[in-house]
Design a protein around this nucleic acid. Structure first.
Lengths: 124, 124
DNA sequence: AGTTTAGGTCTCTTTTAGAAACAAAAGGTT
DNA sequence: AACCTTTTGTTTCTAAAAGAGACCTAAACT
């Protein structure tokens, strides 16, 4: 029997692959940061609260690979590496900022919902 | 010495907490699905390609806890459980759909960027 | 009796995230 | 000369999370 993968399913799987990176919590922060201009590695690390060097490297490499950011290495010692959005990356800023702003604006409601849920759970 | 956590940093950490769930690859799919109406557990599982029962349970529970969806259990055998967006969850649909649509529309460009990157990488 | 069904849970294995040590090499300091 | 600092990583090791698959319940059907 042939595989029964419908067209919509196929589209979803591919979109999922894109979303897996752009929806990532670190990615949202980093892209919003870079939206305000070029930054070097250590600048980003300082501004993205709680990220480890490793995860920053991994995330930035992924963003570079997918075409959202450029990585410019200066052959100095100690090294200096600049990250900046590509034009394609700039296009992503709109929808991503919408999500980020929504999250910031509605965070108190989420916290309230959590507290209510956990209290209800406790009572049961 | 006092902790030096600036106000923006504080805001970012809290927003991060919200984004960690709403930006999740499964969440985006599930919320978009529920946007078109109430669905039962097995319906969602069938439509969200590749999700395991466990991850579907975990994700839906998280969405319920944060106030985005309601969970209605019917005491029948075999059981039946309906999931639906709350009014709050409906508010999330806008920004989430924007992101999802962007991902679908631009997926080919991402794939192209990846291929180019990997080829460049290989040549080096 | 035995089978099927829906919505989970439980256990076990594989990935992934995160913390922390190490690298490299030019320039300044002792 | 030997040592320290600086920046951007990489490597290693541990903890947490995701995924695969068996198991559970109990009514209705065969």
């Amino acid at each position: 029997m042939k595989q029964t993968v419908s067209a919509p399913t196929h589209t979803c799987r591919k979109a999922n692959d894109v979303i897996a990176l752009i929806g990532d919590k670190w990615t949202v922060h980093i892209v919003m940061l870079l939206a305000s201009g070029t930054q070097r590695f250590s600048d980003i690390q300082r501004q993205v609260d709680g990220i480890s060097r490793k995860m920053l490297t991994v995330t930035l490499r992924g963003l570079e690979r997918d075409g959202y950011v450029t990585r410019t290495v200066y052959a100095t010692v100690p090294p200096r590496v600049d990250y900046a959005l590509t034009p394609f990356g700039c296009e992503l800023v709109g929808p991503l900022r919408a999500l980020g702003d929504w999250a910031i604006a509605n965070q108190p409601r989420v916290i309230a919902a959590r507290v209510a849920y956990d209290r209800r759970d406790l009572a049961a």
